[in-house]
Nucleic acid binder design. Structure first.
Ligand code: NAD
Ligand code: NAD
Lengths: 212, 212
DNA sequence: CACCAATTGAGAAATGTATCACAATTGAAG
DNA sequence: CTTCAATTGTGATACATTTCTCAATTGGTG
């Protein structure tokens, strides 16, 4: 029974983007004490069709049982493996402003596979101060420290005007994945992944649909 | 010269989702002192093809001049009108925790068409305290106050466990657009728009592509 | 043990989206 | 006044994604 594995068909990026939501939903089903679910239950919770969920999962293997559905904890294990969060990624946070503080205090990332290792800022008044459990470090030492620690993932919470600059430092230090909170498009070399978070864009996307 | 206007063809949602990024980019071009741009310059800045930008804009009208390109400030006016942010929307923020504080202190929303009018929380220790320029109000008074002020847009920054509950209150108060920071799927009636922000999901989307 | 309801996985079909390619237009240069 | 390079807007085409459909399988029930 030959089956397609990750290095088989290329996985559409849009499918990859939904997997974290499947995982999130499965964890909340598990937290409710359930052991088994179905593509239609998942679809209902997520506002997607059951067929889409089955097809998405089928890119990676056969995880369900006909007539029965999916074993929740088994599927969680599989999705964590697929998304490579069956481990903890050390993360560097740059920008110890209001948003940086919220991120540093937030404990929700650990469960998802991430742990902040360093916090950097350029403001001399902030450097050496503490933020949550961290000591804010001088941006000037970023490349050296991040490279030495082999950190590959970053969160960027600096003003838009500084973002490209900091991004360049991160790339120089070997970072390959950047979650960018600044409302600006970063230019990065191939092989570096950027995800942008722009709440203002989401807001404007909704007002489009509101009647004047 | 008949032309398609908003109530003409239905606009693909994916197109609407890109417009805020076009607007954001145009504003930064304007800030650089430029007056004219082209679909290819916009595409380069955004990592999109010029054809896509032209086709997206063509859903709404003919904004460019052949041979020349687009007048930046004219296109900004058009996009603000299309997205309905040629006005300021009053917003209610629920959740005065770390993230709520970052949002309340953040001045970037005003330029995008939004202004916080009320901040609510359920913690008795927080109610009546001030946060940025606001006085935190009791969640118990949300429905009454939001309805009276005819506020139609909300930002939700409460724990996941409380999010559905607060969402129901917001809907009851007449809110039609909710930016949800809680990592949970909200159930809302038709006619209410939800956009979710889940940094953990973005992170996991990137680790998928990293080599082990 | 036969039947049934529930459910998956996946090919085929339908739908949606992006790209191509080019006629039309513009302003500038000679 | 003609020519040219630049660039738009869009129909046609190519590609991507979702949905439909159903054979196959499962465990439960009588
Ligand atoms: N706060 C929000 O709710 C919110 C919402 C949307 C977007 N954002 C974006 O997130 C980013 C951060 O927002 P914030 O509210 O925390 O801003 P902030 O001004 O409070 O913090 C920014 C921090 O970055 C530091 N910084 C500036 N230049 C730096 C550099 N070159 N290297 C290292 N650190 C540097 C500053 O010293 C400051 O501590 C901004 O781009 C903002 O647009 C924030
Ligand atoms: N802080 C971050 O960087 C971050 C990142 C990702 C997601 N989030 C999400 O954003 C939300 C808020 O995060 P936070 O870090 O600010 O948490 P927080 O615990 O600091 O703040 C939550 C606030 O919500 C209030 N609250 C709780 N129940 C409420 C209710 N029923 N009505 C009104 N207010 C209520 C609490 O009193 C508290 O002030 C959470 O869902 C969290 O998962 C936060």
């Amino acid at each position: 029974m030959p089956h397609k594995q990750p290095p088989g068909r290329p996985i559409p990026d849009i499918v990859v983007g939904r997997l974290p939501f499947y995982l999130r939903t499965l964890r909340s089903l598990a937290a409710e004490g359930l052991e088994i679910t179905s593509s239609s239950e998942l679809g209902d919770r997520l506002g997607l069709t059951s067929a889409q969920i089955r097809k998405d999962l089928s890119y990676f293997g056969e995880f369900g049982k006909q007539g029965l559905g999916y074993n929740i904890s088994f599927l969680i294990v599989q999705l964590r493996r697929i998304l490579k969060v069956d481990r903890i990624w050390e993360v560097v946070l740059v920008g110890a402003g209001d948003l940086g503080r919220a991120i540093a205090n937030y404990h929700g990332f650990h469960d998802r596979g991430f742990e902040i290792r360093f916090v950097f800022d350029s403001d001399p008044a902030k450097v050496r101060q503490s933020l949550s459990q961290y000591t804010i470090q001088d941006i000037a030492s970023l490349v050296e420290k991040v490279r030495a620690a082999k950190i590959r993932v970053a969160m960027l919470a600096v003003p838009a005007a500084a973002a490209q600059n900091v991004s360049d430092l991160l790339v120089e230090a070997g970072v390959q994945a950047i979650l960018n909170y600044a409302p600006t498009s970063l230019v990065v070399p191939k092989g570096v992944y950027v995800q942008n978070i722009d709440p203002g864009a989401h807001m404007q996307r909704m007002t489009f649909y509101l009647e004047a």
